[in-house]
Design a protein around this nucleic acid. Structure first.
Lengths: 227, 227
DNA sequence: TTTGGTTTTTACAAATTCGTGACAACTGGT
DNA sequence: ACCAGTTGTCACGAATTTGTAAAAACCAAA
């Protein structure tokens, strides 16, 4: 609780408005008025989340974000982009932002996104490196899997899907979400592709792929990992 | 804990300010007012980290750093460069500095960088100096390798790649990371170059290069060292 | 400048993974 | 039991990724 949020925004009215908003929601607020100071604070004070305007003097949002990632800093970043610059989304996500929001936005939506990001990070932190599915054991970090003594080969995509399922802690994951997270914002395969990969996982991990014990389908929604 | 930091800086006000800053953070502080004395103390007292001004009489920061490295001293060096001399960054990292900071800087950022460097070194220290890959034995520090009694010749790049793989503790290392860490900021070879070097390592270290036992490829991601 | 070693590029083959579409099987509601 | 929509599955071609050899570029020392 009481997460610390760093707001990096050069326009003072917007910066104070955001600061007030989050303060009133009981977050602890840090601010910076330009990119360079923002980077300093991000590195020095390790906030739980960063809200970052794209357009800024000295060091723009993209560069700042890219630099953070280069330094292996994985604090969640929510980018604010000016209206119209649709390109920004791709560029921003490319630079390593976790989400983005187009100005003007509603405070309700902003708060929702922030909560979502913080929740995602919390789950990721709790995520154990190893998954045990009966006699199958999967190491999500090393990307290895064993059934008893024998190694099972999973592809990169399969590991990514498992990781997403595990992060969801038994909650259903929609096909759309699989595509968004695992495939990313540049590829747009059919949602059926997801099913195929699930089939692959079941074939490799389930004792009886016809009657999955772990990789359950949630009819009309998607899939979930039953722990 | 209580790491010892050597500050090499000719301008007295700055030197004492830095000394006070680090003393107040419970580091043990050593100082030197010029490059030659700095080098002496660096060699004689083996500090845990050196903060080094680039501009100095007698022996400048680049030369000092290069000399340290020539003597196989791998103490982490953080260089302070005057504003505007953008070139300094490249030159500094070239000379073997581990990080650099442009004056004027905030104390918060300086402390953050120092902590980061010390942490990085700590991790490196935990790394065993010798790697045993079957009957091949590699000394990562001395940069020597033997297969039984016969010496195997590895190039500098190959050692650096092995070190990175070993540091990752069996986790996959992406090609991008290889380029970032092994090649650094100044060179931008193709990612295929990484593959070629891996091939070289396999040829020299693996009993059967076609079926690597240690240097595994993680399709779609990179490579890992299977311990 | 030549030399010897190292690094990088390039090109092509081989291996792996991916995406799709068709159709069967299944689901839940009526 | 029937129906419309959803999911499982399979095979195949496409696309991507990797292995590797050979040539070119590079670089420091003689």
């Amino acid at each position: 609780m009481n997460e610390r949020i760093l707001i990096i925004e050069d326009e003072t009215p917007m910066r104070t408005a955001l600061a007030d908003l989050f303060a009133s929601e009981n977050y602890r607020v840090l601010t910076a008025a330009d990119g360079e100071r923002g980077l300093e604070r991000a590195l020095g004070e390790k906030p739980d989340l960063i809200i970052l305007d794209v357009m800024m003097p000295k060091l723009d949002g993209f560069a700042l974000c890219a630099e953070l990632r280069r330094l292996a800093n994985d604090v969640p970043v929510l980018m604010l982009t000016a209206k119209g610059q649709v390109e920004d989304r791709v560029t921003g996500l490319d630079a390593g932002a976790d989400d983005y929001l187009v100005k003007p936005f509603s405070t309700v939506e902003l708060l929702a996104r922030v909560r979502a990001l913080l929740r995602r990070m919390e789950r990721k932190a709790k995520l154990p490196a190893k998954l045990k599915l009966g006699d199958a054991e999967i190491d999500l970090v090393r990307q290895t899997a064993f059934r008893g003594r024998k190694a099972i080969h999973l592809t990169a995509k399969e590991f990514a899907m498992l990781r997403l399922l595990a992060e969801a802690e038994g909650q259903p994951v929609t096909r759309e979400r699989f595509l968004d997270i695992v495939w990313g914002y540049t590829a747009f395969p059919t949602t059926r592709t997801v099913d195929n990969h699930i089939a692959g996982l079941r074939a490799k991990l389930e004792k009886n792929p016809d009657e999955p014990r772990w990789l359950k389908t949630v009819h009309g929604l998607g899939y979930k990992l039953e722990l």
